[in-house]
């Protein structure tokens, strides 16, 4: 048992993670559901009463309970790996990435799961923290609903089903992601 635990406590290579993600998608389909996380954000709006002022959120959110439970499983999975599966915050990122980010003032790139100098409670009060966390989160929530899905719904489910709309959405993900990473992040990181 402890050998098994040691074994799964190592970082998992991409060729283990990718097929497992496909298996997760298949499991959801097999149980008659879909694999898409961003729908939960819409459900949360509905739970908070947004249906009263906006028909987009006017639906019986209880029919989406299965997806909220799925999201709760994600939190639990994160917690289990944090507590029991040899939590190792370091990501084995490339040397190029490390030296580049050091140049932007990130002290120990890859050694924590997020850059702690940006993602912390105190920094929320700074312009930089506000942009990264509040504006960033807003864009994710707005964009994902506008595009009708996120990475799980479009990049995994939609592409697996060879849907042109999902391919276009993924192209969009990269247009936004590349613009941000190449042209905007260099300024935001050094604020």
């Amino acid at each position: 048992m402890s050998q098994l635990l040691d074994w799964i406590s190592q970082p998992w290579p991409w060729y283990v993670a990718g097929p497992l993600i496909a298996l997760v998608m298949f499991s959801m389909l097999f149980f008659g559901k879909s694999f898409g996380l961003s729908a939960n954000l819409r459900t949360m709006c509905s739970i908070l009463g947004a249906g009263k002022s906006c028909e987009f959120f006017d639906f019986d959110w209880k029919t989406q309970t299965w997806n909220l439970v799925f999201a709760a499983g994600l939190v639990l999975g994160g917690l289990i790996s944090y507590l029991y599966l040899g939590y190792e915050p370091a990501a084995n990122i490339s040397e190029t990435t490390i030296s580049e980010l050091k140049g932007f003032g990130i002290e120990s790139p890859g050694e924590t799961v997020v850059p702690l100098e940006i993602f912390n409670w105190e920094n929320l009060l700074s312009v930089q923290g506000f942009i990264f966390m509040i504006v960033g989160g807003f864009l994710v929530g707005f964009g994902t609903r506008y595009a009708g899905g996120c990475t799980s719904g479009h990049a995994i489910s939609g592409l697996s089903d060879l849907q042109p709309a999902s391919l276009l959405a993924v192209v969009g993900f990269f247009i936004g992601g590349l613009l941000m990473t190449y042209f905007i992040l260099p300024h935001l990181l050094v604020m």
């Binding site: 996380l37 994160g78 799961v113 994710v140 506008y146 993900f173 936004g176 992601g177 992040l185």
Partner: peptide, 29 residues
């Protein structure tokens, strides 16, 4: 819809480093 919506999502994804799945996992992590 997909090009504009997707691009807006991409901007946020690159900033936060998290799409809607990983957000929940990070909370537990």
């Amino acid at each position: 819809r997909y090009l504009i919506g997707g691009s807006i999502f991409g901007l946020g994804w690159a900033m936060t480093g998290a799409c809607p799945g990983p957000m929940f996992i990070l909370l537990g992590n």
